[in-house]
Simulated scan of single mutants.
Amino acid sequence: MIHFMRRLRKVAPAQKKEAAMPEDTKEYQDLFRELDSYEKQGVCMELEGKPASPTQIVRAHMIREEPGYMRDYVLNEKGDVKALYFDHVKKDR
């Protein structure tokens, strides 16, 4: 039996996540966590006027080029987020 050894560059524990994950991937994961939290609180979310899940919204952000989406927060009488709407922002030329 032959064993092969590879030299691995040591990465400090704080750098492991950053070294393994592109910045935009982390951004999308953070967005998903935020939207998932809203969904668990019962916040209604829409994308371009249609009901959407956190996954659908994140996917739309991933494929959409700049300028992206504008968020519209709707608050209840207590000031809590009741609904969250995402509308594509069209760039004027």
Rank of each mutant, 00 (worst) to 15 (best):
D24Q: 12
I2D: 11
K40E: 10
T55N: 15
A19N: 12
K16V: 10
D72V: 11
M1Y: 14
D30T: 04
F4W: 06
K16I: 15
V89K: 00
Q41C: 06
R93Y: 14
A83W: 01
V11I: 07
E34D: 12
Y73M: 12
A14D: 06
R7S: 06
A60Y: 01
S37D: 09
G42C: 14
V89L: 00
M62Q: 10
D36C: 13
G79C: 14
R7N: 06
K91W: 01
P22G: 02
L75I: 05
D87L: 03
A83C: 01
L35C: 02
E65D: 08
D92T: 13
V74E: 10
C44Q: 12
P13E: 12
D72F: 11
D24M: 14
M70P: 00
V81Y: 00
L35D: 07
K10M: 12
L47Q: 03
A83R: 01
E18C: 14
F86C: 00
E65F: 09
C44E: 11
K16Y: 10
R6K: 04
M21T: 15
D92Y: 07
M62A: 15
M21P: 04
R7K: 05
Q56E: 14
P22H: 02
G42E: 06
Y38V: 02
D92A: 10
D72K: 13
R64G: 13
Y69W: 00
D30H: 10
I2P: 04
P67Q: 02
M45R: 04
Y28I: 07
Q41G: 15
H3R: 09
K10T: 04
A20L: 12
M45I: 02
L8W: 07
E34R: 14
A20Y: 07
R9G: 03
K82I: 11
H3T: 10
T25R: 09
K91P: 00
I57T: 01
R93C: 05
A52H: 01
E27M: 06
R59T: 05
K26D: 10
F4H: 06
M1S: 06
H88I: 14
E46A: 15
V89Q: 00
L31E: 05
P13R: 05
V81I: 15
P67G: 13
R33H: 12
L35S: 10
P13T: 08
A52N: 00
E46C: 03
V11T: 05
A60V: 00
L84Q: 03
E34A: 09
Q15T: 05
A83H: 01
E18W: 11
E46P: 06
R93L: 11
S37N: 12
M45K: 01
K17A: 10
K26T: 07
K16L: 07
E77W: 05
V74K: 09
I57Y: 00
V89C: 00
K17H: 13
K17R: 15
P13K: 02
K78I: 13
G68S: 01
D92S: 10
A14Q: 08
L31H: 08
A19Q: 07
D30F: 11
R64I: 08
K40A: 11
K17P: 13
L31C: 14
H3Q: 08
G49C: 01
V43L: 09
T25D: 08
E34T: 03
D30Y: 02
R6W: 09
V81R: 04
S53Q: 09
